[in-house]
Amino acid sequence: MKNVLCFGDSNTFGTNPARPGTRHPFDVRWTGRLTGLLGPDWRVIEEGMGGRTTVFVNPLEPKRDGIGALPIALQSHRPLDYAIVSLGTNDLKEIFNASPRTIAAGAAMVCDAVLNYNYGGCGPAPKVLLVSPIWVKPGISESPYVGFAEDAVDRSHRLSPYYREVAEERGLLFLDASTVAEASDRDKLHMEADSHARLAQAIADVLLADAAAE
């Protein structure tokens, strides 16, 4: 059985834009759909958390930095064949004032932490699939989820090339989520069911193709 860790933020958790603070059902969110698409020889492990960043510490949302939580997830769920890193949207928050290049550098640190972790007898390190985030939409500053200014929209559009560069430099798998999924018009931030379905299919295609090539 192949084990896949899905390490991400609220769009990995499956926050439902129709009802702020709630979660899509398992068979709607992309992690649940991925379980069905990959089949019984794969185990999909959900590790999504609302507000999670790559490396930034937010005093308004404590204990949400991905680099801090990652070792716990890796230790708990090893051995792993794949780790999907899907972070960066929350790094767009006004409090961090981070450029797309800086956000990608944070994502790189998370990926490096996955690759360099000491898995002991449960090694080797998993392959990493780095996912560049979906775009946030205009009106994000009025979203129920506070912290975003309108300039987050433009910066979200400019993340993908930097994420791709991180992946290419490290030989990682890569997917630009904005090519297959989008934020809801309701809250400008989280995905509706149809985007979860498209993202799950795209991720499944990447993983299955890589596994077949081994």
Rank of each mutant, 00 (worst) to 15 (best):
N3G: 13
F7R: 06
F7I: 07
G8D: 08
G14D: 07
G14V: 04
T15W: 04
P20N: 04
R23N: 06
T31V: 12
G36F: 02
V44W: 02
V44R: 03
E47I: 05
G48H: 00
M49Y: 06
G51N: 05
E61F: 10
E61W: 09
E61L: 14
G66M: 10
I72C: 08
H77I: 11
H77C: 14
P79G: 15
L80S: 14
I84K: 06
V85C: 05
V85S: 06
L92E: 02
E94S: 10
I95V: 10
S99F: 01
R101G: 00
T102G: 08
A105Q: 09
A107Y: 07
A108Y: 06
C111L: 15
D112N: 14
D112G: 11
V114Q: 12
N116V: 11
G121W: 00
A125N: 11
P126W: 11
V128P: 08
S132A: 13
I134W: 12
P138L: 04
P144F: 15
V146R: 12
V146D: 12
A149H: 10
D151L: 12
V153I: 12
S156A: 03
V166F: 11
G171D: 04
F174R: 07
A177H: 09
A181I: 14
A181H: 14
A181D: 15
E182W: 10
E182Q: 13
E192N: 15
A197I: 10
A200I: 10
Q201W: 01
L208N: 00
D210T: 06
A212I: 07
